[in-house]
Design a protein around this nucleic acid. Structure first.
Lengths: 220, 220
DNA sequence: GATAAATCTTAACCATTTCTTAATCTTTCT
DNA sequence: AGAAAGATTAAGAAATGGTTAAGATTTATC
């Protein structure tokens, strides 16, 4: 689920946005000031920021400058081209003037996610509730971080890359040990067992299926 | 050089756009109809399309649907939210209503290129409370100056440029030593250790995370 | 150009994590 | 039921990471 951080000191507008965004299936975080926004950026890990410019305390541009890596849509009552230009060039992904049409705002939000998910597809694998991020080298189950070792990660990636396919034990051993496909089968058993346990503890069920005499595959 | 395909049947506006875009350093292709646009898409390989909706012949939405892989900014006289929504959801990257402010259009074009060329030359990187200024060649944590050596700076910049990403040890070594990826791993350990210590002394916490067996990444 | 300071590299040490092995128990197939 | 394969557990082995200190190298300063 994508999470949006709504930064607006106007409670009325903020509430309205939160309600609509929730109905659209987004997670919503709220901040009423720039400094609060910066705190939530690291703790809440939003995927997009809706940033109102009229903020007490920190300047909107300062907040904008502090946000890295995720798109920011600036929402502002100021409709002057100068403002738009400086913020767009300053890093904003889009600029919407108040009063805005909610449908249009939702469409512009969708545009941002379309863009990021295109890039995302190469680096992230999704199977059931498991997400394996190859850039961050991380595994999450239901957005819960799972700490896996290097070998466990390698095995899980192999399985998740071919979710419908049974991966023979020999193939797994080859990929992880690289060379000696000897008596190391007992080792693989342990890795699978540990991996299962970690995933089960985070997701509450068993994600890996054993195919008797052959190997393993992801459960569908 | 980035090339922009301008699709507009209005010669006057098209000429104006071409002139301004040229001055901005873009290459410009011109099309006066939808079918012409489709031809130029494959032959001219533009990096972005400015698409006017009022086209003779092909419908603007059909042209939009035919364009894959490059951003399309729709330019239209129709300001109704419905039109915007359908086109944005239909694949447009942005929607600008006529009459438009040229500076704003240029800014919105720049946003698209910033998105597609992932690595943008920014002068300042922000991660958590750390600010790395490439112009001043300085590092501050909570506005407190941290004196880092050249290699430490190089490592930190590499990590901060990709905050969500694990940087393999080999990559770090390559970037800083340039050549010998040999037994220099002990050296990297020391640099990381020193960097951590300096950042910790200024910020009170650990900012660098080790990913066992792989490399390092910024904590988020 | 010589000296001092800063920086980088290397190696050794210890703590921690991860891997492997083997023993034991459970499941599945014939 | 018996045999073969799978699952789990625990313990020792191996590998990796972190820290420190000393010598080598580079850079700065006079």
């Amino acid at each position: 689920m994508n999470t949006i951080l709504v930064v607006d000191d106007d409670v009325y507008i903020g509430d309205m946005l939160e309600e609509v965004l929730h109905k659209e299936g987004y997670g919503v975080l709220r901040a009423y000031s720039g400094s609060e926004a910066l705190l939530l950026l690291s703790s809440g890990r939003p995927d997009l920021v809706l940033l109102d410019l009229m903020l007490p305390g920190l300047n909107g541009e300062e907040v904008l400058a502090a946000i890295q890596g995720i798109p920011v849509i600036v929402v502002s009552a100021r409709a002057e081209a100068e403002d738009k230009v400086s913020l767009l060039l300053g890093g904003a992904a889009d600029y919407v003037t108040k009063p805005f049409d909610m449908k249009e705002l939702l469409a512009r939000i969708a545009v941002q996610f379309r863009k990021t998910t295109v890039i995302e597809e190469k680096t992230r694998l999704h199977v059931d509730d498991i997400v394996l991020d190859m850039e961050a080298h991380s595994v999450t189950v239901n957005d819960r971080a799972v700490k896996v070792t290097r070998t466990e990660y390698a095995i899980l990636r192999l399985l998740m890359r071919n979710p419908e396919q049974v991966i023979p034990k020999s193939v797994i051993l080859e990929k992880i040990s690289g060379d000696t496909p000897d008596c190391v089968e007992s080792s693989l058993k342990v890795h699978i067992s540990n991996l299962r346990k970690k995933l089960r503890e985070a997701g509450g069920k068993d994600y890996i299926e054993s195919v008797w005499g052959i190997g393993f595959k992801m459960k569908t």
